[in-house]
Design a protein around this nucleic acid. Structure first.
Ligand code: FES
Ligand code: FES
Lengths: 147, 147
DNA sequence: TATTCACATGATTTTGAAAACATAGAATGC
DNA sequence: GCATTCTATGTTTTCAAAATCATGTGAATA
């Protein structure tokens, strides 16, 4: 559904959001350990997000990744768009080059419903609201038990 | 969303269904030309489908791929399951190893809705009904114009 | 029964996402 | 200023999906 980059990104951003109230910034190692993701790969992803203004970063000792005031209003769609673009919501289910009403594949009408539902879901889900799930303990960000 | 194999498979199966009433079997070259898919790769996919009883095949002169009586009742879900398994409907949206209510990721509840909608859609869509769209000319199976 | 046609099967190559590596550069605190 | 700690950037490696290549096997028909 989403690219690996996107999966790691969402997990990372949600984790950062859980720690954001306290005002502390999170280092890349800290994040990767928590969400059980490859360190170097995740670093690139977060740098890309930082570049796109999705998250903020701070260099130097006691630096790390965090969300500024504006960024705490982040929705899932913002993260997905920044990494996977919108091919997830505009691409053809059968892999045709252009998905349009004009020249459509046979599953277009049915597929569009599902695709739009996904778009709708991502557009209405806030990262901070997901972070709350983690804080409450009703959801996890990693397979590894005890984390 | 679906693997490339799966995309080609659906397009191929739908095309086979359009020609099935006439009772003629379709050769692999004929199919690939129509749906604009790589020949050898598609051949393997169709052989796999044939192996799984999704479609039928006939060797020798005037042989090819076709649907038998039972197979004309085929749903999309049958094709998807045969090639991609059901990881598409059971896998975690954030890439966690096991998706379950017990140990769920923060988007589980929202994602489940979309996933179930997709499963539902595929379970209620018949291949022959898609074939009709092609026959009516209201949908296409390839990017290439004039086909 | 030989020839031809079309699917079947296994090995191999290509491709691009995913991941790792190496190094540069910037900010903090002493 | 200098060491430390982190981000930033570019290159390389890995790996599995995607695609190709080469060869085998069964069926029709003359
Ligand atoms: S053309 Fe295939 S989904 Fe729109
Ligand atoms: S655990 Fe992530 S979707 Fe169910």
């Amino acid at each position: 559904m989403f690219s690996k980059s996107c999966e790691y990104a969402i997990r990372a951003v949600v984790f950062v959001a859980t720690q954001n109230n306290a005002g502390n910034k999170l280092g890349i190692m800290e994040i990767c350990k928590e969400i059980d993701a490859p360190q170097h790969f995740t670093a690139k992803i977060l740098q890309s997000l930082s570049h796109n203004g999705i998250i903020s970063s701070q260099k130097g000792p006691s630096g790390g990744f965090y969300l500024n005031k504006t960024q705490t209003r982040l929705k899932l769609i913002d993260v997905v768009r920044a990494l996977d673009g919108d091919k997830t919501f505009t691409g053809c289910g059968l892999g045709l080059k252009n998905c349009s009403e004009k020249k459509q594949c046979p599953i277009h009408n049915q597929f569009k419903v599902v695709r739009d539902e996904l778009l709708n879901m991502l557009s209405n889900t806030y990262v901070v609201q997901l972070a709350e799930e983690i804080e409450k303990g009703s959801a996890v960000l990693s397979n590894i038990s005890g984390r």
